[in-house]
Amino acid sequence: MYKENLIQIRRDLHRIPEIGFQEYKTQAYLLSIIKQFPAERIDIQTWKTGIFVLVKGTNPRKTIGYRADIDGLPINEETEYEFQSEHPGFMHACGHDLHMTIALGILSHFVENPITDNVLFLFQPAEEGPGGAEPMLNSEIAKTWRPDIITALHISPELPVGTISTKPGLLFANTSELFIDLKGKGGHAAFPHTTNDMVVAACSLVNQLQTIVARNVDPLDSAVITVGKITGGTVQNIIAENARLEGTIRTLSIQSMERVKERIEALVKGVEIGYSCKATIDYGAMYHQVFNEETLTTEFMEFTAGNTDYNVQLAKEAMTGEDFGYMVDQIPGFMFWLGVDSSFGLHHAKLMPAEEAIFVAVDVMTKYISYKANQQI
């Protein structure tokens, strides 16, 4: 597939961002490209709004998996692109338009240049929520087309184009959403003594939550609790009967995630007693840590450093969440950062990744997958 074709595909995909399990236009567009390849070389299966594509090896002994996430985010785009999102309030602000384009470039290469082993492409929905990796991997299709190893990448706006960064072991954190609803007793602002004010209760709870990391997590471990949104009340002269806190939890160990949740639940019970209210907790989507298989990751880094002109860097652990963690929990594999040199970061309305990075990733992964196909199981 020519470079100009990949650029056009990326821009087409950028125009149609859709959130988790609503990627209908995205799926249709991807299928329109994939079905142009010779039918005898590939098998295609759809799963919800995702797609499995098996590129058949000439004498397969194993299956090498490659995953690309396909959903967008509920962010109103503010880039300078001429090809901005055509869906108001939604944007590919995490680079999944590049992720899909790269996967199509790799897929095209192996259709045109067959290798010994099968290569399975998973175009996965709902990475940003509610989480598509785990159910996709547990589908009957994935059980039939089970890869022996699996790989993926994520763009990194902070790194220059031509940079590949990863590490053996823990790369991305355990993550969990956090939603807390408080219900008290509302009333007239002039008679606070007859009410149970949930704005006050919510403010108190936010401050208490911030003590968990400081006083309940091992100082040699890492954790983050962020409350990003608070809603409560109706108008200025009515004491709020309801309040809602929305946030996220991130930890570098499973044990710390369990400990943090225990402390959240204890503090919420205290708020119920102290403010005479009722509270409910919902942890929403929870993502398993991305733990790169050490031998494969080291091999990939050494191969890329020795067989390409790209800059291979050792990454640090990040508090980023990625549901690819469920895949590498079941299948040996790894994820890496791809430098895209953007002034604005992930989940920002002005994210503008450099399109040249697409060709870097296609080059790296076609070379590495070809190398793996020459190895014994």
Rank of each mutant, 00 (worst) to 15 (best):
V161G: 15
V53M: 06
M365R: 07
V227A: 09
S165Q: 10
F37L: 08
E317A: 14
A126L: 03
A190R: 10
M1W: 08
I34E: 00
I155V: 07
D341Q: 07
V213W: 01
T49F: 02
I141C: 02
S222W: 02
G339R: 03
K261Q: 07
T298Y: 04
P192K: 13
G20C: 05
T175P: 06
A93Y: 08
G284F: 00
R61E: 02
I51A: 01
E112P: 09
W47A: 03
M100K: 00
L170K: 13
G89T: 04
I9D: 00
Y326R: 11
E241Q: 06
V200T: 09
F359L: 11
A318C: 12
R10S: 11
F300T: 08
L107I: 06
F37C: 11
A361D: 06
W47F: 05
M91K: 01
E77D: 15
M100T: 02
A103F: 10
A354E: 06
Q208W: 10
A189S: 12
M198D: 06
H99D: 14
S85A: 13
G57V: 10
E356S: 09
I358F: 00
V235W: 09
I249L: 09
M327I: 11
E246Y: 06
I212V: 07
L104G: 04
I34T: 04
E18S: 03
K167W: 02
S85E: 04
T297G: 08
V364L: 14
V217I: 08
S343F: 11
K278H: 06
L104T: 12
I230E: 12
D218Q: 15
S108N: 07
W47L: 01
Q210K: 13
I70V: 12
M1C: 01
K167S: 07
V340F: 08
E262F: 13
V213Q: 14
